[in-house]
Amino acid sequence: MSAQATSSMPRSSMPDITYNFAYLDEQTKRMIRRAILKAIAVPGYQVPFAAREMPMPYGWGTGGVQVTAAVLGPKDVLKVIDQGADDTTNAVAIRGFFEKTARVATTTATADATVIQTRHRIPETALNENQILVYQVPIPEPLRFLEPRETETRQLHALAEYGLMHVKLYEDIARHGHIATTYAYPVEVAGRYVMDPSPIPKFDNPKMDDCPALQLFGAGREKRIYAIPPHTRVHSLDFEDHPFKVQHFAKPCALCAATGVYLDEVILDDKGGRMFVCSDTDYCNTRQAQGHVGELGVPAEDAA
């Protein structure tokens, strides 16, 4: 719409809107960058920062966007995913935001990206040591639903007193027979801080451990930044007799036949028809292009 308006109006009457590189002003970027450096130095600790209002509502990734804006350079290649998908509203909006304000190259291919902003997934393709994974975090405090007072949770972190969290997991076992937490599953980072990995499925937790990429977390509404440096021990909390386990899927992806990946359920009709497909669209598309066909998939040459 705006592009049309620009082309149809005489150029002189429309002032060119120019943004500072990646939208944020330089002082804000410096403040965020200092927070990122401290977050890296104390893995898993939530560094408070003066989050700005962004031109999108809270809950749409304002924290992740600010972290991305602070690290982004002109040579970066940006990928944005929302629940694994490159083509959903949140991902498209944020990718467009940085195309407009930073004019950086964007991609959907995980391997080609240098900065990946993600909402609630870690890509299936293994990350490399030159990549930065930026998570959008709604509630950074893993103890918040157990202890609502910030003064108290801060002290619990200071004392490394995480008994509450273990009680919560134990109560899961007492009630359900197993740990029923399936997303935002708490982790211990580098043997010290208990951290909320953002609402990724617990399926993705093992990918955080010893990951070669740098992982940064931004919570805009809650004004916190935290980080996991590359090759850092990330341990999902568990008990000796109830070890941490990830979800398993009965069938492979219906489109690309991938196994060992996280699947989304797609309802097909109103008669109970459903299929399970890769949540990571780039991974699924790449496999289909390579000729992998699932039970409901169409061979690549027929589709064209």
């Binding site: 500072n20 590189f21 330089e26 970027k29 960058r33 990122i36 450096l37 350079g73 740098l214 980080a227």
Partner: peptide
Amino acid sequence: DPVFDAQASFRAAMWALAR
């Protein structure tokens, strides 16, 4: 170039502390 030189210097410091 205050914007890009600052960004490049920060990125060097960031990766230095991360590795």
